[in-house]
């Protein structure tokens, strides 16, 4: 058997699966987004009509779509920087020569990452319960009166952001820690001889050297955070007052509650374009900074 034939034979099962169950549906989603596929079309395909850009135009005039977009941006714009800052802080602590029991701390801080979102969301819902939650109880000691974390439209999204940061920071922490460990030690030694403080070393050595890793982490995290779904599904059902309805939550309800599958496909595609655009912007912004340095 020639190596070329063997190669094709080895890749074809995987390619077939990915082709049929991923590439084909993605293409179909694009086509579907130009139709009015709904419950009637689900029953009988004769009811299917081509509507061109109708779904997209319609969506841009739907207040709930804009609201879900706004909520998702809130989650991304506050959540991503906060999450990366916490990850960086934890990574710096774990990288410090002064830290003891590094193995234990690394495992403890990473543990939330491998837990099941739904299960820990259930815990947090209880943790942040207005009347019986430990969080309000603890805040009571410093004189803060109970906050209705998940029931107040102003607090619901911040609570979900806190939850997401708690759940996810360990992932980026590991990547950033590897980035920190790759920085040559002699750079720090030279700085120390010059008498540079910790903060000066951080600003002039650590952060510039960490920049490629940070860009990678920022892109992965942003793309992930745009896909917010399980947290509001379990913790708030998108409420109160739709304050936590994300784009994907909106798509899920359009598609699988109201069976407007054409419209839901248009939502999915708009989200995809959004993620693509933001990723491209970040790459461009990140690389431009590199040239200047």
């Amino acid at each position: 058997m020639s190596s070329s034939r063997a190669g094709w034979l080895f890749v074809s099962p995987a390619l077939l699966i990915i082709g049929v169950f991923f590439f084909l549906p993605v293409l179909a989603a694009l086509l579907l987004s130009f139709t009015d596929f709904d419950l009637y079309a689900l029953a009988n395909l004769d009811n299917l009509r081509f509507v061109g850009l109708g779904n997209y135009i319609d969506l841009l005039q739907t207040p709930m779509f804009w609201k879900s977009l706004r909520n998702t941006f809130y989650f991304v714009i506050v959540g991503v920087p906060l999450s990366i800052a916490v990850s960086l802080g934890a990574a710096l602590l774990l990288d410090s020569k002064l830290a003891r029991f590094k193995g234990f701390f690394r495992t403890a801080l990473f543990a939330p990452v491998v837990t099941t979102v739904v299960a820990v969301a259930v815990i947090w819902r209880y943790f942040f319960h207005t009347r019986y939650g430990l969080v309000n109880y603890s805040l009571g000691f410093i004189g803060i009166s109970p906050i209705d974390w998940l029931g107040d439209a102003d607090w619901s999204m911040p609570t979900i952001i806190l939850f997401a940061v708690w759940k996810n920071f360990g992932y980026n922490m590991i990547i950033l820690l590897a980035g920190l460990q790759a920085i040559p030690q002699d750079l720090y030694e030279a700085a120390r001889i010059d008498g540079a403080s910790f903060w000066r070393q951080l600003r002039h050595i650590t952060l510039p050297m960490l920049k490629p890793t940070m860009l990678l982490v920022a892109i992965i995290t942003t793309s992930g955070y745009f896909q917010l779904f399980a947290e509001p599904y379990v913790m708030t059902r998108g409420g109160p007052l739709q304050s936590t309805t994300s784009v994907l939550y909106f798509m899920f309800e359009e598609g699988f509650k109201w069976w407007n599958l054409g419209r839901a496909s248009a939502v999915a595609f708009l989200l995809f374009l959004l993620i693509l655009g933001v990723t491209a912007l970040m790459l461009r912004f990140g690389r431009r900074g590199e040239d200047g340095a």
Binding site: P25, A28, L32, Q227, A268
Partner: peptide, 26 residues
Amino acid sequence: RENLFKTLLGALVIPGQVAMIPLFLL
């Protein structure tokens, strides 16, 4: 081989949820 692999890597940016609705019908 190379082009195929590049196509696959490029597709990593597509969120899985885009495929979900047609996948359900399939």
